[in-house]
């Protein structure tokens, strides 16, 4: 099977007006498999967002190739198909909403693609149902909460039926309730709709939901594996200014003090169980 997204020896540089070129990526390689849920961690300026924009041709590599489902993103004739295949959701929901009625906003992308009205109606309804916003279809987007707006933005992407969605810190501006709503939807899209998900985030507990975690620093991948693998490298993550999930950190700290506790603890429940075992035994 063709990979969903493949970075092959990708280099990328910005040219700013005053300064000379700034090289961001050099000889970067990464394969995102179809159906996967990949979380990308890294502090501000580590190259995560540039990587996200390279995923669907919003940025094109200076050297090397980004291949989306077999298509080279640098090839102009693939432009529309690539963007239909890989959708993007950004941090600020207010910047992504264009229409004055929720369902019109969701239909915006499809109208631009010249899809038949009957098909648009069907896809908009389905997309709004998928993000649990169908009841709000006639509402004005600016009256919704942050989490609801972000779900409308996601519905706009789903309506285009992408195979993959790249989320660039979709919960950074939301309150805890909004975060939970959006995360539930992201998980559901991956599990029930089999959409490949790339989730860029600062929140370690969000990354723990993925089946693969990538850690970036200076535009390089410094860790790559299952959440359990990656988060067991507590010192490495802390050295690049990242946290680990609290249950993992607690176990790590106690282990350092000489307690016999397992290393690969991610969730609250696992942690409780491990402490209970040690306490009882």
């Amino acid at each position: 099977m063709k990979p969903m997204i493949a970075f092959e020896n990708v280099s990328f540089c910005y040219r700013s007006e005053e300064e000379d070129r700034i090289d961001l990526f050099e000889d970067f390689n990464l394969i995102i498999k179809k159906g996967d849920f990949t979380a990308v961690l890294g502090h501000n300026g580590s190259g995560k967002s540039t990587m996200a924009k390279l995923c669907n041709g919003l940025l094109k590599p200076t050297a090397g190739k980004v291949i989306v489902d077999g298509m080279d993103t640098a090839d102009e004739k693939n432009d529309i198909t690539v963007k239909k295949t890989v959708g993007m959701v950004f941090q600020n929901p207010d910047n992504q909403i264009v229409a004055t009625i929720v369902e019109e906003d969701v239909a915006f992308g499809l109208e631009n693609l010249g899809v038949e009205p009957k098909v648009i109606r069907k896809r908009v309804d389905e997309a709004l149902q998928a993000v649990d916003m169908y009841d709000y279809r006639g509402h004005e987007p600016h009256r919704l909460s942050g989490g609801q707006k972000q779900r409308v933005a996601i519905a706009g992407i789903i309506a285009m039926q992408p195979e993959c969605i790249v989320f660039d810190e979709p919960t950074a501006m939301l309150d805890p309730k909004g975060r939970a709503e959006v995360l539930n939807i992201i998980k559901k899209l991956n599990e029930d709709f089999h959409i490949t998900v790339v989730l860029i985030t600062h929140y370690m507990d969000e990354a723990a939901l993925a089946n693969r975690v990538i850690v970036m620093e200076d535009s390089k991948i410094i860790a790559d594996g299952t959440p359990k693998d990656v988060f067991s490298h507590v010192e490495l993550l802390q050295s690049v200014g990242l946290d680990v999930p609290q249950p993992t950190e607690l176990m790590y700290e106690l282990k350092k003090e000489g307690y016999a506790l397992p290393e690969d603890i991610l969730t609250v429940d696992e942690c409780i169980k491990a402490i209970e075992t040690l306490y009882g035994g």
Partner: peptide, 8 residues
């Protein structure tokens, strides 16, 4: 601290 990374 909204929207900042852990270090920030």
């Amino acid at each position: 601290t909204a929207g900042l990374d852990p270090k920030g």
